[in-house]
């Protein structure tokens, strides 16, 4: 589904990602973990053509280099952002509808007359999928952080993408809501969307991931199943004793 080959990203003197190889299989939840500053978000930005890079990034066999940023949604790749990037001036409904931009067309004259129509079924299904229906008319600016994280997931999912990049979906979420978050990520995967997940919450990562890649200082230091990763000596060192639980 996604093949990253020998990816290197430099910011001036800093090498943020160094000769990274990474393969995400269709239909899996693939976690990309590593300490702060390891280069995980930079990998997402390279996929989205936001930062210059060397190496190859292939999605469904297609080289992404040179593709205009806004075309990624169209070919089936969407993302969320580490520091939550909701459109604050819009309602929940409008935020999610922007996510459907690539799946709809504009007819300018119809829009002026207010008869252009919206992807109603898609919107209703997405609102229900994420349990957001009652909040649909609320302005994003007044909603709590955790809810907005869900809105961001819904916005990335409404276009039925083949691949979603999630950047720390559990950050800032109260522990009590993490179970629901896990369930919804699994549900997205079960609906046919492949997921590349950057996350610091090891309990969550080990519980829901099918495979895990570990980065440190821009380089891949390990990859494997959650069980293999939690037993890996280099991984444990990189996290400096941070506890890593394997699920089951």
């Amino acid at each position: 589904m996604l093949a990253i080959e020998n990816l290197t990203v430099r910011f001036g003197g800093v090498i943020a990602v160094k000769a990274l190889n990474l393969t995400v299989e269709e239909g899996e939840i693939h976690a990309l973990i590593g300490p702060n500053g390891a280069g995980k978000t930079t990998v997402f930005n390279a996929i989205f053509q936001v930062v210059p890079y060397t190496g190859g990034i292939l999605f469904a066999g297609r080289e992404l280099r040179g593709l205009p940023r806004h075309r990624l949604a169209e070919i089936g790749v969407t993302r969320t952002f580490q520091n939550l990037s909701i459109f604050p001036s819009m309602t929940v409904r409008e935020n999610i509808l922007v996510g459907a931009h690539s799946k709809t067309r504009s007819r300018f004259v119809a829009e002026l007359f207010g008869v252009s129509g919206e992807p109603k079924q898609r919107l209703t299904d997405t609102l229900n999928f994420f349990g957001l229906s009652p909040l649909s008319p609320a302005y994003a600016a007044v909603l709590p952080y955790g809810t907005l994280k869900t809105v961001e997931l819904a916005r990335a999912f409404i276009s039925s993408p083949k691949l979603i990049l999630l950047d720390e979906p559990a950050a800032g979420i109260p522990t009590s809501e993490k179970g629901a978050l896990k369930a919804v990520i699994r549900k997205m995967r079960d609906a046919g969307t492949t997921i590349l997940l950057v996350e610091h919450d090891m309990e969550l990562v080990m519980d829901i991931s099918d495979s895990v890649t570990v980065m440190d200082f821009g380089e891949k230091i390990a990859e494997g199943t959650p069980a293999q990763i939690s037993a890996d000596r280099r991984v444990i060192e990189a996290y400096l004793g941070e506890e890593i639980h394997a699920a089951s």
């Binding site: 806004h70 819009m90 300018f108 916005r155």
Partner: peptide, 26 residues
């Protein structure tokens, strides 16, 4: 009507965040 349509939302999204709007296909 324009502001409440797909194009109008795209315009407002670009105002809020260009990078996010682009990631949504705008």
């Amino acid at each position: 009507n324009f502001l409440n349509s797909r194009s109008g939302r795209a315009v407002r999204a670009v105002h809020d965040s260009e990078m996010t709007a682009a990631a949504m296909g705008v």
